[in-house]
Amino acid sequence: MSVGDYIRNSQIWKSIFRHPAPYDRRNRVVVMLTNFFLHLHPVNVKQQGIALSYTWCMGGITFFLFLVETITGVLLMFYYRPTLEWAFNDILALRDVQTLGIMREIHRWGAHAMVITVWLHMYRVFLTGSYKPPREFNWVVGVLLLVLTLLLSFTGYLLPWDQLAIWAITVGSNMARATPFLGSEGPGAQLLNIGGYDLITSASDARFILLGGRFVGEATLNRFYILHCVAIPLVVAGLIAIHFWRVRKDGGISQPL
């Protein structure tokens, strides 16, 4: 008996994989039903529905990039400290001296790539009319995921704490100042006052809430760090689960009716 067979017949192996290797038709069906990671998929699928020239694989690639970002992001979190004193220096060290500092490169390029693949996924879903009934709601979930992907990228942009970072966030968040009613320089904000006392000022408007201050400072760094590493990823993970679940429940990968 070969070593391979010995391992495959051991109690440990069998306790993990509850059926023989997927070499025949029966076990290829069973593997999809009993494996946690594979059970997202159906057991069988139409050939043209999974053709790369049809799906462009962009949704799958986006999900894969999300996983890459999560793994590299967690590794970076072990090293990086979101304070004015350390943020820039930690990134500098990741670039120059730290072993596996390449995680930052992969994280940044993966983030750029993810924005592009989300767009392409949306483009493909539109062009195949896959948002049409019964998949309308899943398209809405997809738009939410698009927004959150952009927000993830936006919040991450600040963390290196270099010139590129703070000025990009400054330019981006200046918009919030002009929010109608809720921004200190937005139309209608002047109407919100009690007895001549303005409710919306530069210390209480939408931009202040976003930045945690009147300008991009340490409070902003902390705020964006939490949003980037914890808050948004949690929401995204939940929405991805719903998105995938709905793909299955709404009739699988779209096909001609």
Binding site: M32, L38, N44, V45, K46, Q47, Q48, I50, P256
Partner: peptide, 16 residues
């Protein structure tokens, strides 16, 4: 085009 050669195939191995 999408209706031609459109047999059902098993996800393992074709998609996985």
């Amino acid at each position: 085009f999408e209706q031609e050669d459109n047999e059902k195939v098993l996800v393992w191995p074709d998609l996985v």
